[in-house]
Design a protein around this nucleic acid. Structure first.
Lengths: 187, 187
DNA sequence: GTCTATAGGAAGATAGAC
DNA sequence: GTCTATCTTCCTATAGAC
């Protein structure tokens, strides 16, 4: 991404919204131009490699947000495990807008045929599992038990996003977050 | 769909494979023509309304298969609840090829922008929930408990499909099926 | 850095011969 | 019923003026 002039953080926000709603192939350059207020040719000036570069910037931006607001919370040894989890879950609710928003990585997983995304999906999932495994270890689970719980947590988050959107009922997602909280409760 | 000449059930099989792999927008008429061995114009002869009609036929075909092989199993009052569930789970494993295949309805849920699909997703999910709720009632759960269990089952199935594909590990899906079996076990 | 204009190709869909 | 050939539209991407 080249040096910028005006809006830049706002541009990523707009691109993210379009990619989330439409997926990689579903998002056309016209869509992306419209949401940013720029013309197509101007988008190519900011992102010389075109649509793929825009997608990578969006992914990288979300990746950093998740690192900072979710994984860091889960691993912060200055706080109790209960508080760590509560903070992480609160930020997960923000990230997915209580289930109204989809997971971008998943939106990119269909179609595209770009192997790049497959790899990022795998490593993204591995990071979620590692973070929740660490939380499991912190509450004295065995390492295999901690791993199983982490996988189950990821399954429930992803599944809940789908069912929440399909039935248009955010209570489903909120309920899943509560179940996850219970799973890591020590009482 | 017009009267047919040669392959017909084979055609649906081929179309299904393409739609599952690529989603609705990702599946081009060239892809669909190639897999069926017909030319594009011939596809339009069989499906006058084009791609959308093909997609609807695929969905309807799967819908019937699920009715017959999964929902009917779950509701078959001639068998024990344990056996009903075992049969249904076995067929779920077939349907998704142990997690290697995606859920077509979900593959159609992105992009497209066709409201038709949104409606079919909702009613499809409702049917899964109703079927598993009935199983819950059959093992004497309260109606609210049966409903909650059914929603949780659907969440785990959908989530497990995603995580299984993301990590390329069918053990994850098989393990989820075991967990579902446990949830409805009466011992 | 942003624009207008356009190239070049692939998409969905149709006409009409056989 | 299936084909070849073609239409229109939309896509990603680029050239070049300002």
């Amino acid at each position: 991404m080249r040096p910028q002039k005006i809006l830049d953080t706002d541009m990523i926000t707009g691109l993210t919204k379009v990619f989330r709603d439409k997926g990689y192939e579903g998002a056309s350059l016209n869509d992306l131009a419209e949401v940013t207020g720029l013309k197509k040719a101007s988008l190519y000036h900011r992102f010389p490699d075109g649509k793929q570069e825009m997608a990578e910037c969006v992914l990288s931006d979300i990746d950093q947000w998740v690192d900072k607001n979710i994984f860091f919370s889960l691993l912060d040894e200055n706080k109790s495990t209960k508080l760590r989890l509560a903070d992480a879950l609160k930020n997960i609710e923000v990230l997915y807008d209580s289930g109204r928003e989809t997971c971008v990585l998943r939106a990119f997983s269909m179609h595209s045929g770009l192997a790049l995304f497959e790899q990022q999906i795998k490593s993204g999932m591995d990071k979620w599992i590692a973070a929740f495994s660490a939380l499991g270890i912190a509450i004295k689970l065995s390492s295999t038990q901690a791993h199983q719980n982490a996988v189950q947590t990821l399954i429930e988050l992803q599944g809940s996003l789908i069912v929440t959107k399909g039935l248009a009922d955010t209570n489903i997602f909120k309920n899943t977050l509560k179940n996850i909280e219970k799973r890591y409760s020590t009482e």
